[in-house]
Design a protein around this nucleic acid. Structure first.
Lengths: 268, 268
DNA sequence: GCTTGACCCTGACGCAGCGTCAGGGTCCGA
DNA sequence: TCGGACCCTGACGCTGCGTCAGGGTCAAGC
């Protein structure tokens, strides 16, 4: 006959753990000796090891209790389920390894150097600081979610700046931030944007890694919340066959377009 | 500017989580607007994602706080450490997968069929139930720790029973359980045992998977605790050049022996 | 102007799976 | 008979949030 300490030692757990399992009804309370000590037989060791095997595999104790009482069939199904979970957890850790490796590799700043250079160039081109800050915030969000795509995005944006017309759009957008939704100058602004969009050749967008829809949605909502004229701008764009903002794309009905989405100049 | 809900959505966490990080000092409390709502900038998103990346990799929040304040060097060292832990956890899950697979494969009884058959044969040979029960308990412990070695152990034990002398030892051991330590019949018993041990050819033990030392130690201590004459028996065995009980082996000085340990007939 | 629903606020308790006292009693060897 | 290693119960502590409770706020629609 074993004491609780011996039982625990056999199974490689602490005495506290054994008592916890009694309290939770996982392991039946054994007989007591004349002075109230618990006394176990060898079968208790087998039971305890079985419980630990499940618990260490991450099965919640409440579930372990169910499984101990379950039939062979349910048990086998549960084991299959546990195995699935373990495999999923392994894959998860592997992803986490990659993620923290990226964390260490990046200088752990909010923006990669290309993005900083791009924002500096905006300032040099006379784009108002308010617009630059808005751009920065958007790119911070994108960089946080997709650091690996930033170099591509920045190459695209940088080339956009080679066209003086796009720079003018920034200034107009800046002015538009304070516009009432019915301001007539918005029409001219949107016309300009559309002209630019249509000038982009599909080849230029080859390999454009798409911004995920949910991210685009969030960025759009920031734009909508912070710029009073935003709904009007989007409406005018739709009239001209373009939908969305972060991820501007041609309306299908209007003009059959390449499948790739387009990264627009952004502001929030 | 973002509300707490938007911030949480960007980073893929709950609002509660963000507040928790404020309370724990992981994320600085931002400005409040006129009605007391928290207002965040985009940099907070980057910070929050960094925190989540670490937390999801299993870093305790208190440690995350340290790392956020740490220099590049310490951070890199910590990341290496985290990576080691993740790899260890992956290996751990792989072991757990094997363990639960065994759990499902075994009929989840305390003893495999070979062991049950062996115990039944003991009964058939007239070994007293008390001895059979003691044997069973020992094998339950061994089976719990080393299910994969049970077939081998049982083959060995089964062959032992082919020799009528070993059966007699069981009866004598049964009598010995109640003996006082100075009972003279113990001497004859031990002599018999030694004769048997020396009759075992080394080849018979080829591939004998060793019982781990700690398990043997525990089994020995059960024997010592439950049989008053145990210390005397062990002493007599040592006089004759054998040490241990669960894992009986020749004393080196006395007789240079094969390296393989020997599984003795056991009782507790 | 009023309601409705979706937000926001603080504070506090709940959960798993034990670790860790606290404040006792027990057992065993020297 | 003493000391140290066990055993007992009961209760609080820890992490990382989930989940009320009991409020205020804001925008939209009627």
């Amino acid at each position: 006959m074993l004491t609780i300490g011996q039982l625990a030692a056999y199974a490689g757990v602490t005495v506290r753990t054994v008592r916890h399992y009694h309290a939770k009804g996982l392991l039946p309370e054994p007989e007591r000796d004349h002075s109230g000590y618990r006394r176990y037989d060898a079968l208790a060791v087998a039971e305890l090891i079985k419980i630990r095997t499940l618990a260490e595999a991450g099965v919640p104790l409440a579930r372990v209790r169910e499984l101990l009482a379950a039939g062979e069939e349910e048990f086998a199904a549960a084991v299959a389920e546990i195995d699935r979970r373990l495999r999923a957890e392994i894959r998860e850790r592997q992803r986490h390894r990659e993620r923290i490796a990226q964390l260490a590799a990046g200088d752990s700043l909010a923006l990669p150097p290309e993005a900083v250079a791009y924002l500096d160039r905006l300032r040099d081109l006379g784009v108002p600081e308010r617009m630059v800050a808005a751009e920065r915030d958007s790119w911070v969000l994108i960089a946080a979610q997709q650091p690996e795509h930033m170099p591509l995005y920045m190459r695209i944006k940088d080339r956009q700046l080679d066209d003086p017309v796009s720079v003018r759009v920034y200034h107009e957008l800046d002015a538009a931030i304070d516009c009432e939704p019915d301001d007539p100058s918005l029409v001219a602004l949107v016309d300009e944007m559309v002209r630019q969009l249509e000038a982009i050749s599909p080849e230029e967008w080859e390999g454009n890694a798409e911004i995920p829809d949910d991210l685009a949605e969030l960025l759009d909502s920031v734009f909508l919340d912070s710029v009073p004229a935003a709904p009007r701008i989007l409406a005018l764009l739709e009239e001209r066959g373009w939908t969305g903002w972060t991820k501007l794309e041609p309306l299908r009905a209007h003009q059959p377009a390449p499948h790739t989405a387009r990264v627009a100049s952004r502001s929030s």
